[in-house]
Computed example of a mutant assay.
Amino acid sequence: MTTTSRSRLLGTGINRVDGPLKVAGRAPYPSDFAYPGMAHAVLVRSTVGSGRITEIDTTDAEHGPGVVLVLTHLNAGQVKRGPMTPLGVSPPAPLQDDVILHYGQIVAVVVAEIFEGATEVADLVHVGYSTAPALLELDDPRAARRTNPWGRDAEWGDAAGALTDAEVVLDEIYLTVDNTNNPMGPLTTVARWEGDTLLVNNSTQWASLEATSLATAFGIPEESVHVMAPYVGGGFGAGLRVWQHVVLTALAARVTRRPVKLVLTRPQMFTACGHRPKGRQRVRIGATRDGRLTAIHHEALTATADDDNFEPTATVSATSCACPNVSTRDIQARLNRPA
């Protein structure tokens, strides 16, 4: 009998450092943190896709059981937009005006002693709107289009001529749909202030960027912001930007002078923390019959929020393959959709 040994291609197996804590349910996610005197915040979202707020009545909500604070654009004060980042411009600062840019936009925040109370009282915030036709589709002729939005369009050689002369040509259109990142743990923020120092437990995949963004929002030194995220609870990209609910939780904590927790509901995950945008791409590739690329021509039309600038697409083709003739173009259709 002959015995052969199997070689181990990946080496000796090891346990994940965080494995035992996670499988035992002892890993502390942001939603697990609580502090003495903590209040709970719940969002109120727009029920229209485009327009303006004409009236907002918080009287009933302010007299609801256990209500601590109701924030709207009328009393939120100035909050600055975050800085330009490697991923593009930061999302707009929340509750700064009466303009509605998309369905589900945050129009108020209710803070109460308990989560259930805040949830119930949120329905007592009455909002009136003047509406405008929402721009929702890539081909809507009313939608503004922005060419070369990141300044990364590429052009060298003669892509059009090389395609004409190529022995083999691929010419295809690819459609991609909206893709919403929904990790198992809904994104959560717990914020508290100690004097002028902001401490945040948050579902973030980029703690240093969050510290920079929050420091900009509140006009404080970056070293005065401490972001803690030992375990995220899943992100898939949703935790790479600093969303409006994060800023609002910190704002509510500053105004109330007590810790505040905000946990997005599952429906809110579709409008409050971004998504990968739908788009249409035309890709034309020229090659010799033995497979050498002679031309790449890539045009991408991508949906983006009216007040956002994110997700380059075609630019990747300029650097992915060696090719003497390249043309890549990105175009954004600015729509009434979340960031």
Rank of each mutant, 00 (worst) to 15 (best):
Q268Y: 06
T85I: 13
A34K: 05
A250C: 09
T85P: 08
G233Y: 03
K80G: 08
T304W: 01
D153G: 03
S317G: 01
D18R: 00
V283R: 14
R282L: 02
V260I: 11
G51R: 12
I106R: 14
A272M: 04
P141N: 08
T302A: 07
T72Q: 06
N202W: 10
E155M: 06
Q205I: 05
D330H: 07
H226G: 05
I53A: 05
L240V: 07
Q96E: 12
H126W: 08
P83A: 05
A295C: 05
R257H: 12
P230D: 14
G239K: 07
V190P: 00
G19S: 07
V89Q: 12
V109C: 10
G51V: 11
M84F: 11
T189S: 15
R145I: 00
G25E: 01
I100C: 05
L71Q: 11
T265D: 13
R241T: 15
H126S: 13
G66Y: 11
A143V: 02
T197C: 07
L95N: 10
T197W: 05
Q96K: 01
V177W: 06
H102G: 05
T216G: 04
V227L: 01
R16N: 13
A322R: 14
V89K: 12
S90Y: 03
H245D: 14
G25P: 00
A118H: 07
S317D: 09
L136R: 15
A27R: 01
E172N: 12
D123A: 10
G286F: 06
N75R: 02
R292K: 14
S5K: 03
E113S: 14
F115L: 11
A143Q: 06
P28E: 08
R26V: 13
Q244E: 15
A24F: 07
A272C: 13
T249L: 04
F270S: 06
L198A: 11
W150E: 05
I56V: 04
A112K: 07
D60Y: 00
A211R: 15
L293D: 04
A41P: 03
P324Q: 10
D139T: 13
K278R: 12
T54S: 13
P36M: 02
G185N: 15
R254P: 02
A27P: 05
V127K: 09
E172L: 15
P277Y: 07
N202F: 10
L43S: 08
G19W: 10
V255Y: 13
R337Q: 12
V168P: 04
G235L: 07
G219I: 13
P65C: 09
L135R: 15
I100K: 08
H73T: 03
V232R: 03
L9Y: 06
Y231S: 02
S50G: 10
I14V: 12
G11H: 02
R292Y: 10
L138D: 02
E223Y: 09
V17M: 11
R257W: 03
